[in-house]
Design a protein around this nucleic acid. Structure first.
Lengths: 207, 207
DNA sequence: CGTAACTTTGAAATAGCTCAAAAATTGTGG
DNA sequence: CCACAATTTTTGAGCTATTTCAAAGTTACG
């Protein structure tokens, strides 16, 4: 399956989605048309596990690139979780890790400069893509436009552009043609003051 | 029990906390001392249910007033959830509702003006306090300082002060001496463009 | 009644926004 | 493979919401 369409909020869902390839965002759209991306999902992510519990989504699922999805029906999820309580705890854990990332983004949205926020986002994506084997020495592919990035960061695309220029001029990272090329990982990490604790990387391995 | 202290992040937890009276926040503190409150909890809230799953908190639990807490040990939670799978789903649902609020705050932090954000926060608290019988016709008690509010909104306390003045001058709401007095609920709601969908009020009732 | 915490105000600085246009890139059909 | 349209990126100039810094009021409280 392959799309770049809205999965609308406010509608009863009967299945959840696992992302197999490509990128999708969870996006909230305001009455005036402004958008906020609350999370970017990578291959391997359970994109809307929460709809199993909430049934109705409070946001849209928007494809950022072509992607392959697997649908898991809620009735299947119910059977799985009833038969294997252990898996219920695993899914619940995933929900919690997801929420931890939302909290971290709140901090970035509220407290950080544009430069630090962009740097942080690239740090997070670099680490998460590394977990699923989608980064290489030089960086990673990220098929977003600067406008997508702006919707994610709570900034204007104009300002994102200028911020990217600054990161480039400081020889930290270059974002061009859907690719993030990291020139100075330590420098990037340091300007972002990036601390991946909230990703619970060690505890994920337990599961 | 009664405190106004930090419940530190980064430490192994063996119990979760239910708030019986008073207000607590979940707060993330940056290296430079800046703070972001990612959620305000009211009586009745399961404050750190996620520590049952994550074990280590990614943020601090900070009392905003004197409060009474009930501790539920993780071993007790494990027994409860093993004996009653239905309750596991309830807890998981609560985790999801919690996360939905974090996402909504991301939108507010990223996209809204100071005026609309303050108004939105008051709208949310008014509704949530109403659910637990802690609001009256005129408004509700909120024992926070303007600095607390600033940490929550991602603004300076100076700017929060000026924004509160504007809301007061527009005869929408007055925040003084730990009390939010709502003069014009419809006006407040409208300037906030407040939509409580993300609170999943209807679905909570099912449980 | 004195001290600490909190609120209010003013003035100047700035990060990020808006508007508008030009340049570059990407995609498409012929 | 080219030409053209659409999308995306880049830049400039002026503007505004919010911050910073600093000081004066006010309130709470031991």
């Amino acid at each position: 399956m392959c799309w770049r369409r809205h999965h609308p909020s406010g509608q009863e869902q009967s299945s959840s989605t696992v992302l197999l390839s490509g990128f999708v965002s969870r996006t909230k759209i305001l009455p005036d048309g402004k958008k906020q991306i609350t999370q970017i999902h990578l291959p391997g992510d359970f994109v809307d596990l929460q709809s199993f519990s909430l049934k109705v989504l409070d946001h849209d699922i928007v494809g950022l690139s072509d992607c392959d999805l697997a649908l898991v029906s809620h009735s299947a999820l119910r059977h799985i979780t009833e038969a294997h309580p252990h898996l219920t705890r695993v899914y619940w854990f995933l929900t919690n890790v997801d929420a931890a990332a939302n909290r971290e983004w709140e901090v970035w949205l509220g407290q950080r400069s544009a430069l630090a926020w962009v740097a942080s986002l690239f740090c997070e994506l670099n680490i998460r893509l590394g977990l699923v084997g989608l980064k290489d020495d030089g960086g990673f592919d990220l098929p977003l436009t600067q406008t997508d990035l702006a919707d994610c960061l709570g900034l204007t695309s104009v300002h994102v552009n200028r911020t990217l220029r600054e990161l480039r001029e400081r020889s930290l990272v270059t974002f061009r043609a859907g690719r993030v090329a990291i020139q100075d990982w330590e420098g990037l990490r340091s300007i972002a003051e990036y601390d991946p604790t909230y990703l619970y990387l060690d505890r994920r391995a337990d599961r």
